[in-house]
Amino acid sequence: MTHEPKLRVTGLHKSFGPSRVLCGVDLEVPAGAVVSIIGPSGSGKSTLLRCVNRLEEADSGEIFLDGACITRLRGKSLDAVRRRIGMVFQQFNLFPHRTVLDNVTLAQRVVSGTPPAEAAERARALLARVGLQEKADEHPARLSGGQQQRVAIARALAMEPEVMLFDEVTSALDPELVTDVLDVMRRLAEGGMTMVVVTHEMSFARDVSDDVLFMDGGVVVERGDPATVFTDPSHERTRRFLDRVLRP
């Protein structure tokens, strides 16, 4: 019996006008695995992630969730698939006109039709999980970047996704706020969540991932377990990149 991975991407191509951002990318994420994607900016990491939940439309290639092709879904079935894929953004994108609690409950209420009391209860439990239960009634503007990002993670988790996508979620944060967010992600990984993490946090990629992908110029240059990729990369491009980012 073959084990179909939770998420599978094959031969993904994407261009923005004349610039080719993805040139045939494959990705496999087994259920419960954490896959980190590293690489220089402009290498196509974020675009790959955005194609997976169809915020960008790939020019060609296929995306499978639990073996079902989701590449050409539209309308309601696309909305339904997106509920199963949580996404956290670099810029948090919390809804500024809503309280923290409302941010976490909104989609549950309007999409899943969860009764408000039940949605609020679940939201408070999730906020407690990211250490922000006492901020439930604040507006996002009153929170630090790190706190906002943790709320964004809680908001995505509220839909009980099967896969979580993290798009450089600590890149817009002050260094001292990064740890709290990474801790939340680490605990999520330990809890068995399937995760795809685009990141510049090399220690996170090394310590938490099951698999590391190094992307450059729209292709996956190297993939493997973190120990191998970080200590003994087989490609010159990977080595140069790691030398540059790991040098203090």
Partner: peptide, 15 residues
């Protein structure tokens, strides 16, 4: 309204 707002809502499965 920043595009990120729409993207965040859509990624939660909102139509």
């Amino acid at each position: 309204v920043p595009a990120g707002q729409t993207e965040a809502a859509r990624s939660l499965g909102m139509s």
